[in-house]
Design a protein around this nucleic acid. Sequence first.
RNA 1: GUCCUCGUCGUCUAGUGGUCUAGGACACAGCCCUUUCAAGGCUGCGACACGGGUUCAAAUCCCGUCGGGGGCACCA
Length: 494
Amino acid sequence: MTTTPHPVRVRYAPSPTGDFHVGGARTALFNYLFARHHGGQFILRIEDTDQSRYNPEAMGWLVNGLRYLGLQWDEGYEVGGDYGPYVQTERLDIYQKYCQEIIGRGHAYTCFCSSERLEAVREEQAKNKLTQGYDRHCRHLNPAESAQRAAAGEPYVVRAKIPLEGEITFHDVIKGEITYQWVAIQDAVLMKSDGIPTYHFANVVDDHLMKISHIMRGDEWINSVPLHLFLYQAFDWQPPIMAHLPLILNPTGKGKMSKREDRAPDGKLMPVFVRTFQEMGYLTEAITNYLALLGWSYDDKTEIMSREELIERFSLERVKPSAAAWNYDKLDHFNGDYIRRLSVEDLTQRLVPFLNKAGVPATYETLLPITPLVQERMKTLTEATDFVDFFFMAELPDYDHSLLIPKKMEVATVRQILTQAQQILATTDFEPTALDTALRAAAESLSLKPGPMFQPIRVAVCGKMVAPPLFETLIIIGRETVMKRLGQAIAKLN
RNA sequence: GUCCUCGUCGUCUAGUGGUCUAGGACACAGCCCUUUCAAGGCUGCGACACGGGUUCAAAUCCCGUCGGGGGCACCA
């Protein structure tokens, strides 16, 4: 087996081109768990070598997302460290230096082909159904001559001089042994014509310079490993241990998880950005636990695990090689579970901002007694609004009077129920046992079961069919408001 | 197309030659509890892609087929 090098240094290296995606979050989480498990360093490096796709909002989304997920990095962007800078565009001179070195070592060459020519080559290849790729047109140019042309200002890129034959085999901790024929590998661009390195080059140089011990990244990168290994060899560097994480697939299992937030056939939003999950009220603990289980498992039954347990138990050996489909239902279940595990105080505190944002003027104090009534009914924090809004309204919004009438019940009966309720609630102590006794007795006197008796009262007081338990609700709302709403309901029936 | 890779219930997974008439979770169905909705309890439905080997014995090893996913940019 692979011995784990010490110290363990792993990195999450996103590029600031868009919103922070759950796929990236899972990669970051695995790196984080691995680092913590081994007492190593978790590093955040920014790979912003694509000037054209740079999105100024991306860094904010990233940093907020990582904070929300509780993935504190030890070194890197904003926190610094001994191997900085950690933003690639601040390391351009470093790449230039190594670029000259690899050319000098004869493992890379300058290429003067225009993008027009490259496109033409590709078109020709496509037409003849040949393998796509650079035709190595400039590979055999005389180095001295090339240097002269470059010095004269002719635009050029630098390409890897990939071996023309033979094969390369490497070991991936998750996937095992993998072999590629060198012929299948392109003479990839290392340095773009604007002097900025490509991902491949910057990534290898940085991982080496930053003493990265393990590379954990999405499976979509595995095809670039031969190129990277070529670079390590060219520089005579020791490559890190590789671990390619299984991809996250769409809920349907078809294709890698969408980069955009679409709606399901039933109209429900299917979030994919960390920020959206946060806004919808998914708990850090829940989403993190769910994410950990996408591709990794501890045993045959344990699913709910605290951060500490995750750190203690995580290992690359238990990461599966096959892709996993995202399951919103299961995430919801986890979130509901974690919500129920929260103390009433904690949940109340977390709920207030969500309610306020939805326009419900709840405060910690006013919400505290209500929280226990709704705690076990929520899957997400945003759902709380529907359960508690009527507690905070002076006037109930208009609702259809038919809601007051249970199926198969006469309007006259409903009127009776509400009138009875009015009489009882005018005098009975607002205390659970007293209410229970009085209202059940009333039901019996009307030859009704408690259910049908309570339903019209619930609707009258809450304005909706589904609401928290009745007696507790009545008590919190208070006699005065209850009496008023009962009166309004009766009026509605006339 | 080509290269790489994956293949256990609908989904997430346990399983590394016998303890598997394949275990758990989500979802679904039924029942119980019950003042609505939940939560909870119980039960059920439901899988080793297929075909060949190897072996006394295969979900587990080998080969092939089929199916899925990913890559093939001066993007990462």
